[in-house]
């Protein structure tokens, strides 16, 4: 049991690293299945339809090369952009974009002492940040922050279309 637990941590890390190297644009989570600890669900989000088979094959290859001598099974659970948008909106943006959003939240909190909220647009892969109770009308409005087009790529430095008062993005 302990050996499996240690292996689980190692394998989870390895899979995440390999996925990040091969597909840095796609958010990835690795978790044990709810009904089987030896089954690892590798969820890859916001994958365009024409990339789904390729990503799936990559995970199959990881199974054969990386963890072939263990009892673990990798399940490639590839989520299309549409499925991600509908059911996993927080994973619509790549990790750098999420980090950026968190930075913006912190910045706003420090600047205006008010919490901000953000949510994904229902229409496209943009993220709308609502800066509530801002000090002046023009300082902050509703700013759109793209998730790097529909294919999430680490373009977060270019993602802020807002006034460049938010010059913290680097």
């Amino acid at each position: 049991m302990n050996a499996n637990h240690l292996n689980l941590a190692e394998i989870t890390t390895q899979v995440k690293v390999r996925m990040r190297d091969a597909y840095p644009a796609y958010p990835v989570t690795v978790q044990s299945s709810p009904d089987d600890m030896l089954v690892l669900c590798v969820r890859v989000f916001a994958v365009p339809e024409n990339q789904i088979d390729e990503v799936q094959d990559f995970i199959f290859d990881l199974q054969d090369s990386l963890i072939t001598k263990t009892e673990f099974v990798l399940l490639p659970m590839i989520k299309s952009i549409e499925v991600t948008r509908q059911y996993y909106p927080k994973h619509l943006l790549s990790e750098p974009s999420l980090t950026l959003l968190q930075t913006i939240e912190l910045y706003l909190f420090e600047k205006v002492q008010q919490p901000s909220e953000w949510q994904h647009s229902q229409r496209d892969a943009t993220c709308v940040i609502d800066y509530r109770m801002v000090p002046t009308k023009n300082d902050f409005n509703m700013h759109n922050i793209t998730g790097g087009e529909l294919t999430p790529v680490p373009k977060c430095k270019h993602a802020v279309s807002a006034n460049d008062e938010l010059a913290f993005a680097a």
Binding site: V39, C41, Q63, V73, L75, P76, M77, K79, Y87, Y88
Partner: peptide
């Protein structure tokens, strides 16, 4: 493996 994914999706995932 694909069948396992299918079953996991049907039983546990929102979609």
């Amino acid at each position: 493996t694909k069948l396992m994914v299918l079953r996991k999706t049907a039983d546990y995932e929102p979609e």
